[in-house]
Amino acid sequence: MDTYIPRRLVVAAAVAASALFGTACSAAESATPTATSDVVEKPTTPTSAEPTPERERLPYTISFGGDVHFEGVLRNRLNADPKTALGPIAKVLGASDLAMVNLETAITTGGTPAPGKQFTFRAPATALTALKAAGVDVASMANNHGMDYMQGGLADSLAAIKRSKFPVVGIGGNEDEAYKPWRTTVNGNRVAIIGATQVLDAEFIQAWTATDRQGGLASAKNEARLLQEVRKARKNSDTVIVHLHWGTELQKCPNEAQRALAPKLIAAGADVVVGGHAHILLGSGYLRNGYVNYGMGNFAFYNWGPDTGRTGVLTLTINGRKVLKDRWTPATIQGGVPVPVAAAGRQQAVANWKALRGCAGLAATPS
């Protein structure tokens, strides 16, 4: 099994490789170290690259958090200081080469609330500032709250994304834009990340789904379109990641729709499938030659309880198509934000997380 090499050493190796093979090395910036991670440097901007020889590619890390919005107490934190809005978990996210969350809100201060919808979430554009400051590199807005303020809110969201230059997947001005992967290159690995939602309220499916004639969300209900995008990304990527909004609220095991879609995505060429929606943690592990997470739970959320307040960061070490290692950094939601579990309770929290794969049909090691 390959060994993860800290990003600071990778940069030196990449410079040497550039001289030999004429490839370009992207600029990097330092991230804050944590007790559980090596000091790493994050790539600053996405880069494209021609296919690279195997010997040039080195392992990288990507961390995932769950559902994020900025309602209630979180709005107060955002208004006070966007750069510290996500609290201490930023050190965990920032220590990885890449980090991703599900942004479960419209980015607007206007728009019209979805008619008849019980819960509608929105946040100002500083929400994107908060994510970036917390070490998040890309977010998905393909979820059942991404268009809570309908087409007016969508227009505001897309404009805010464009102004901020913060990468967001799963949403767009048309179908192609919504399904389009975000691409970056890390340690010689060409990474493609696609976002889509399997959860949409029945009355909003037509109005919220992106088509060639209207903006909206990338829908996983259109399996053929999603699988087509995965196959397309497979052709010119070393790692293909699909981020999904899926599952049944408060159901501890994956539902039939999740179990049916996951193997199809792996067969189409996805190496990692990660998602959430259930408000609680679900199992993670290996499925065939890929890695699947069925539920990341809440992450930065305005309410929480004994189960819905359990959260954490999933960090994968990857080289090309191989997920070499998974690591769980457990946390609990306190004051709306995830706070890493103290050392005394960490071992039990990790054991509890590993036990979740029991009903998920996933393995602790690749098959």
Rank of each mutant, 00 (worst) to 15 (best):
D2V: 10
T3M: 14
P6C: 14
V15T: 12
C25M: 15
E29D: 06
E29V: 07
P33T: 03
T34R: 00
T34Y: 00
T34S: 02
T45F: 15
P51A: 13
T52Y: 06
E56N: 15
Y60G: 02
V68H: 03
V68K: 10
R77P: 05
N79V: 09
G87Q: 01
P88D: 10
V92N: 01
L93S: 02
A99K: 11
P113Y: 04
G116H: 11
K117M: 12
K117Y: 04
R122V: 04
T129F: 07
K132I: 05
A134F: 05
G135E: 09
G135N: 03
M141I: 03
N143R: 02
A159V: 02
W182F: 14
T185H: 10
G188Q: 14
R190V: 07
I193V: 14
G195W: 13
L200W: 08
F204P: 10
F204H: 13
Q206T: 14
A207S: 12
W208V: 11
A220K: 08
E223I: 04
K232L: 13
K235Q: 04
T239W: 03
L244W: 10
T248S: 09
C253F: 07
Q258Y: 01
L261V: 08
I266G: 03
I266A: 01
G276W: 04
H277V: 00
S284N: 15
G290M: 11
N298Q: 03
W304K: 05
G305D: 08
P306Y: 04
T308R: 02
T311C: 10
L314S: 11
L314H: 10
K322A: 09
R327S: 09
P330D: 10
T332K: 15
P338A: 05
V339Q: 07
A349T: 01
W353G: 05
K354L: 06
G358S: 10
A364C: 11
